[in-house]
């Protein structure tokens, strides 16, 4: 039955309309969480406000649980879900570079949209920088894409790698979130002094 895209041929217009509707929910959640503000986002790296990790981790665990339950009920075919091939070198290097851009720029590609919608000028500067970066990547180093493809290890998940079922992994992530939530409240109390009074 799900994903719908595997059992239905949607027109381009229908596809793009669904993108706008789902995007509305995406942007609404990001702004509600405070992710339209670069200071709220970067606060996670100074440990006085861990909202970024709390929101991300809870979102991952929620979607994870939903995917597991729906596939266990036979409603969702997880083999139909797109899985980006793993390339350890590319994802590690890309992640390190991305993290540097995040702490210097203050946003990530999705959250800069929430910041622009709420008027933050630095969000517009970040988006322009991203556009320049994507253009530079395409024009100056298009060969990196071929390298990534040639050296990829292929589709790989924790259950397929370890032989431990998705249900156990889901339970482990839920348990870890509970433990991390406790740890983060301790961190926030300890580093509360770094919190700016006006933000």
């Amino acid at each position: 039955m799900f994903p719908l895209s595997s059992f239905h041929e949607f027109s381009t217009a229908a596809n793009l309309a669904m993108a706008v509707v789902l995007g509305f929910g995406f942007g609404f959640c990001l702004e509600r969480a405070g992710f339209g503000s670069a200071r709220k986002l970067t606060a996670v790296f100074y440990l006085y406000d861990m909202a970024v990790v709390k929101v991300m981790f809870t979102a991952i665990v929620t979607a994870m649980t939903g995917v597991f339950l729906l596939s266990a009920a036979g409603v969702l075919d997880i083999a139909e879900l797109y899985l980006e091939p793993t390339n350890f070198a590319a994802q590690a290097i890309g992640g390190l570079v991305f993290g540097a851009g995040f702490i210097v720029g203050g946003y990530c590609p999705g959250t800069c949209v929430a910041s622009m919608a709420t008027g933050r000028k630095d969000g517009y500067a970040f988006a322009l920088g991203m556009l320049a970066g994507v253009l530079a990547y395409a024009e100056l180093t298009p060969g990196i894409d071929a390298w990534i493809k040639d050296t990829a290890q292929g589709a790989m998940t924790l259950p397929s790698l370890t032989g431990i079922g998705a249900g156990w992994w889901t339970l482990a992530f839920i348990a870890f979130l509970a433990f991390a939530g406790w740890g983060m409240s301790k961190l926030e109390a300890r580093f509360a002094g770094l919190k700016p009074s006006a933000a």
């Binding site: 946003y107 970040f126 920088g129």
Partner: peptide, 20 residues
């Protein structure tokens, strides 16, 4: 912010995706 956006875009291109 501009420099950070540029660097983040490069990282996302190499990693084939971003935070989302």
């Amino acid at each position: 912010a501009f420099v950070g956006g540029f660097v983040a875009a490069y990282g996302a291109k190499i990693a084939k995706g971003c935070t989302s």
